[in-house]
């Protein structure tokens, strides 16, 4: 089990990801993620200082589209598929101060 990963960190990560974990789930997740991180420790020894990060498999640059309007989706169809449409909008529970 990893000495790097504590259940506090996993709990914080779960909050960031908006996932609720029961105490048992938190314990299991901490153990499983810890095992994975131990396994991933194979890269710790690598000296990668001179290696540039690679984020895109195929190097492309300057991909742009012209500023031309295309048809929109139908609002009724979109709102018809929404969990809580109201007055042409998406209704959500109150946003508490401090969110976002």
């Amino acid at each position: 089990m990893s000495d790097r990963l504590t259940s506090d960190v996993v709990a914080k990560v779960a909050r960031l990801a908006r996932l609720d974990l029961t105490p048992a789930e938190l314990e299991q997740a901490t153990a499983q993620l810890g095992d994975m991180l131990d396994h991933f420790a194979d890269i710790d020894a690598l000296d990668l200082a001179d290696v540039a990060p690679m984020t895109q498999p195929y190097p492309l640059v300057n991909v742009m589209r012209p500023d031309v309007v295309r048809p929109c989706l139908d609002r009724d169809e979109v709102l018809g598929a929404a969990p809580a449409p109201q007055d042409g909008r998406f209704r959500v529970p109150p946003v508490l101060a401090g969110e976002g």
Binding site: D20, V78, A82, P83, P93, E99
Partner: peptide, 18 residues
């Protein structure tokens, strides 16, 4: 849970997300 798919309601948005 805002625009499509499943929503489980709750008292505020953050609780609803989770």
């Amino acid at each position: 849970g805002v625009r499509y798919g499943l929503r489980v309601d709750a008292d505020d948005t953050n609780a609803m997300y989770s």
